[in-house]
Simulated assay, not measured.
Amino acid sequence: MVFLSFVYRFLTNFLFLAMVYFSLNYMEKYEHRAGLAILVLVYTGMRAASTLRAFYFFQKIEKLEAEARRLQAPINDGSGGTAGRKQLVVDVARLRRDGELKSYMDLFFLALIVLLCVAAIMRQ
């Protein structure tokens, strides 16, 4: 499932990039092409801001993971029931890492889209 989530994220980003590329290339009038490029830039800016905010969220989760591991260390010496807690911390760490990788993938495609839009605005 993890691999499929990465493939899905890649395909959706790639399809958005392809849609922007073909949309901008088939516009013949400069005014329409520039208007569409500006609208796509606004949308891309909002998505980039959301993605960057997700990094702040992942940073906070990482701090919580470290705190949970610190608090769990004395408990591990005692009674049972810690295997479930350890697995929970490991699962959260894996989900955070996967989320960060997906956010990097989003930022890469958004940067390519910004380059396409700027190129479309600059050419005549």
Rank of each mutant, 00 (worst) to 15 (best):
F57Q: 07
F22R: 05
T44M: 13
F3A: 02
A73I: 05
I121S: 01
R33S: 10
R9I: 02
A54R: 05
E62K: 04
M27T: 11
F16N: 06
K86S: 14
S50W: 08
Q87H: 10
K60I: 00
L110W: 01
F14A: 07
A111E: 04
L107C: 05
A48T: 07
A68M: 10
A93T: 15
L17Q: 05
L115T: 01
S5V: 03
T44H: 06
G78C: 03
G45S: 09
V114F: 06
M122I: 14
A66K: 05
D98S: 10
F14S: 04
F108D: 02
M19V: 07
Q72Y: 03
I38N: 13
E28W: 03
L24P: 02
Q59K: 15
A93Q: 06
Y56P: 00
L112K: 14
L24Y: 01
F3G: 01
F3E: 10
Q72E: 14
A73P: 06
V92Y: 07
D98N: 15
A48E: 14
D98R: 09
L39E: 06
R9E: 04
G80H: 08
Y43R: 02
F10H: 08
G99I: 03
F16I: 07
F6K: 04
R9K: 15
D91Y: 08
F3T: 05
K86Q: 13
D98I: 05
R69N: 13
A83R: 14
L112D: 06
C117M: 01
M46S: 11
T44A: 14
Q124N: 15
F57K: 08
Y21G: 02
M1V: 06
M46G: 11
G45A: 05
T82Y: 02
G80C: 08
D98A: 09
M27C: 10
V42K: 07
E67F: 09
A37N: 04
I75N: 05
L88Q: 07
V7Q: 08
L4R: 12
L24D: 00
F55A: 01
V92G: 04
N76D: 15
G99N: 12
D106T: 00
H32V: 01
A48R: 13
I38L: 10
I75G: 04
R123Y: 09
A120T: 02
F108G: 04
L116Y: 02
E67S: 10
M19T: 05
S79Y: 03
E65C: 05
G80Y: 07
K60R: 09
T12S: 02
E31C: 04
F58P: 00
A119T: 03
F10T: 07
K86D: 15
L24K: 03
E62G: 06
M19S: 11
M122L: 15
M1N: 03
R53H: 09
V40Y: 02
Q72S: 08
Q87V: 11
L36R: 13
V7G: 01
G80W: 09
K102S: 08
P74C: 09
Y104I: 09
V40M: 12
N76T: 14
A54L: 04
A111Q: 03
R47Q: 10
V92E: 07
L11R: 12
N13F: 00
E65Y: 02
L95S: 08
F55K: 00
A66C: 02
I38E: 15
L107W: 06
Y26C: 04
L52K: 13
L115R: 04
L101I: 09
A83K: 12
G35H: 08
Y8V: 13
L17F: 08
G45V: 11
P74K: 02
K60H: 07
V42I: 15
A37V: 04
A18Y: 11
Y104R: 13
